[in-house]
Amino acid sequence: MHLHKYEKIWLVFGIASLIVFLSVVGVSAFSHDHTPSGGMDTIDPEKVNETAPFDNPGVSQLDDDTYQVTIVAMAFGYNAPEMKVPAGKEIIFKVTSTDVVHSFTIDNTKVNMMVVPGQITTKSYTFEKPGKYLILCNEYCGTGHHMMSSEIEVY
């Protein structure tokens, strides 16, 4: 198996680029906490409304700099009254579903979370700019999928 000299140059360049990409995302993810949404917590999908923190969805302040927003997703909407959070503070989103798979996606942010029944998805995000952000479901969930949306106000 003989590689042409130029093919070697190309592969070295290509593989080096891939290593750089991986290092950039890896370092940013694991040392600066920029991992994608996820989490290993589970929940009984039929008892969501009786299980903390989803028995009391909405915004709660955890400490001076941290807020938690708990959301229950269902076909075709989100149960979380009065989503108002401050800019510049860490917001921890916790979402689960009572029925099928959904997403909890906030337009123009890094918040793009899959919501899987039986699992709790977590994502931490800090809004920089105040305003009203569109929330939508981007995982097909049925006839009303394209109607499934909401809004969060950042003040």
């Binding site: 593989i15 991986l22 890896g26 994608p36 996820g38 709790i120």
Partner: peptide
């Protein structure tokens, strides 16, 4: 499945690395 729960970041990232390996034959 990178943005979904139930798989830890370690296993997600490991498969990301393996995904990058499959790019090499396409470069060839």
């Amino acid at each position: 499945q990178l943005t979904e729960p139930g798989i830890s970041n370690f296993w997600k990232f490991l498969q990301v690395v393996l995904t990058f390996m499959v790019i090499v034959p396409s470069l060839m």
